[in-house]
């Protein structure tokens, strides 16, 4: 049976992880390779790196980071942030990313989704949909990290993104993001009912129950979380056990091989 996925998310600046991590037991908390290896051992099902490097001069740092991580960690890696063109997608995939997440550029120029899907396959094109609720059952798409309203309807954009070739949607509620008060379940339900591709829930996880709700009531295939791992509040083995005991299919955490750190 296909298991539901738990995906830790890291913000990356200049090739270094700056947010969304547990700083426990690490020599160098900002080293993406060390973090990725640690979360792999803990049973993370995938990893997402979001590049927030502001300076375009420093953007090549993200490719180096993807290479060093993908060379040593053998679970799927998604990279997002600053993807503007099909050649950006190609560079990330060639560096070792398995999936590329696009957001603002896809809203501004939706053909980018088609170019990515045609060139490299839908399986590696994730469209990140950031929305705010404007009325019950109605959400507006925002870009630029949630700063810019677009006037676009969230459900319509989700459908269009999939029609254009997105293989997966990463849905973030700007209302719940950062509050640790739970995912926007009506939003997740509306989007998972509207599209056939897997949906990753993002924004608002604070307790194990929030993850459970995203999977069961929200219909999410995966949950993305950062804060819940911050301060080591809940680790992945605990969350997986919690969810498995409640009937959510989970890939068990594999015991470490002998000789593994």
């Amino acid at each position: 049976m296909l298991t539901k996925r738990i995906i830790p998310c890291f913000d990356v600046d200049n090739g270094r992880v700056v947010k969304g991590i547990s700083f426990v037991d690490l020599v160098d908390a900002g080293d993406p390779v060390e973090l990725a290896a640690k979360y792999d051992l803990q049973g993370a099902d995938e990893l997402v790196f979001l590049d927030i490097t502001a300076s375009s001069d420093a953007r090549t740092s993200v490719y180096e980071m993807i290479r060093s991580t993908a060379d040593q960690v053998f679970i799927p890696l998604t990279v997002g942030g600053g993807v503007r063109s099909a050649s950006d997608v190609r560079l990330m995939l060639e560096s070792g990313a398995d999936k590329v997440s696009m957001n603002t550029a896809a809203v501004q120029r939706p053909e980018l989704i088609e170019e990515g899907a045609k060139g490299f396959g839908s399986q590696c094109i994730v469209v990140a949909v950031d929305v705010k609720r404007i009325a019950p059952g109605k959400w507006e798409v925002f870009t630029h990290g949630g700063r810019t309203p677009t006037g676009r309807d969230g459900l319509e954009w989700a459908r269009e993104a999939v029609e254009r070739g997105a293989g997966e949607l990463l849905v973030t509620s700007m209302d719940t993001d950062g509050h640790q008060s739970g995912y926007d379940i009506p939003l997740l339900r509306a989007i998972t009912d509207a599209v056939e591709v897997p949906v990753i829930a993002s924004g608002g996880a604070g307790t194990p129950e929030h993850l459970y709700e995203a999977f069961t009531e929200g219909g999410a295939a995966a949950v993305l979380a950062a804060s819940i791992f911050h301060f080591g509040k809940y680790d992945i083995p605990f969350l997986k056990q919690y969810l498995a005991e409640r009937g959510v299919p989970m890939r068990p955490v594999e015991p470490a091989e002998q000789g593994d750190a």
Partner: peptide
Amino acid sequence: YGMTVPHMGWNT
């Protein structure tokens, strides 16, 4: 058609 595709994730 009608199934969630791609089949994406960990399976046995």
